[in-house]
Design a protein around this nucleic acid. Structure first.
Lengths: 187, 187
DNA sequence: CGCCGAGTTGAACTGAATCAAGAAACGTGG
DNA sequence: CCACGTTTCTTGATTCAGTTCAACTCGGCG
């Protein structure tokens, strides 16, 4: 089971606790276009994506749609600051494909954190892993050309260009759609 | 005591445990120019800065010195991936001012994580806080002009421009020293 | 059919990089 | 306390990657 495998890549958890964790994660299906977080509202769940694709994004001052992050198979997805601090979200989140996910509510997750030290540890290690990923992207954004960033992204989301519209990918990379189109045509 | 205050801003910890935590953090003084992490070596300690300033940086393919992050009063400083996964560091770290810090070793910290659930939680919440900071900078890097980024940084490190050389600040912002000099002259 | 959103292509423009030369500030030794 | 070399900062001229604006192509679908 993908969720179980994912947890195991981070930390080994005793069978009985793992069972309880899996019980708290509720399987849900979403359709392409479904929104799960709205700007200004609190993000209620943390999701594990078994199958499908989603993104977080916001509309900037100039009315432009900016993709912040993509989430694909075996990713943990949530509005981190909104979910963990239960405050209004800066971002929206929507599915780009019909998707199968497992969701856990803030209260249920905190119950697990309270009850099991090892789950708290799992949370810490997961946060550190996410931190590393964001730091990697920051580094890429800061010191690589548009083309290098595109190739860097392809590594993390190998088939994203067949799955997400060009405009979303471009804003994720911090470039315009036109520039991305030109980069692509030269490969 | 600053370290204690800092911990309290994240989570309330019982007096007796806090005492034990404080015992594990060893006070140290460093001089301007001292290196505490070298590229390719494992980062041994996590530091809390009571007074002073430091930075993490690396030398890129073209031989350019790139500042990754600054750490000032009341910041936690460490090479996150190197320290927590005990693997060779990509970065170096050095002090830019004579500094007073409290350091804790990997083993001692893990002992605390093992022993006290609440410290593990503190670690998780801290990681989430760092994650948010890095995400903020990523957002700034991606969608703001050089000038906006400079002003953004001033908020986070108010007097950095009197404390760190221009070149370090420029590479932190992802721009050249010349560009930063010009931005400054227009303010 | 004809419209509509998604992607492409072209031309002009611009913010920031690069290259190059000086000016200031800084610390170390005589 | 001054002189000298080194590091730090500024300024100018040129170049370039990527933006902007605008027109055009293509495939899908009512």
């Amino acid at each position: 089971m993908p969720l179980e495998n994912f947890i195991n890549t981070i930390i080994q958890i005793p069978e009985n606790i793992l069972l309880e964790v899996k019980e708290k994660f509720v399987k849900k299906e979403f359709s392409k276009g479904d929104k799960i977080v709205e700007q200004g509202k609190v993000c209620k769940y943390l999701y594990f994506i078994e199958k499908g694709l989603s993104r977080s994004y916001y509309i900037n001052e100039k009315g432009k749609d900016i993709t912040v992050w993509f989430f694909a198979e075996n990713d943990i997805m949530t509005g981190v600051e909104s979910f963990f601090q239960q405050k209004p979200s800066m971002y929206e989140m929507e599915f780009l494909e019909d998707s199968i996910v497992y969701q856990i509510s803030y209260d249920d997750l905190n119950e697990l954190f309270d009850k099991y030290h090892i789950i708290e540890r799992f949370g810490r290690l997961l946060a550190i892993q996410l931190l590393t990923e964001v730091a990697d992207k920051l580094n890429a954004m800061q010191f690589q050309s548009a083309k290098e960033r595109y190739l860097f992204m392809i590594k993390k989301f190998p088939n994203i260009s067949y799955r997400a519209p060009l405009g979303h990918i471009a804003s994720y990379l911090g470039i315009t759609q036109e520039t991305l189109s030109r980069i692509r045509s030269r490969i």
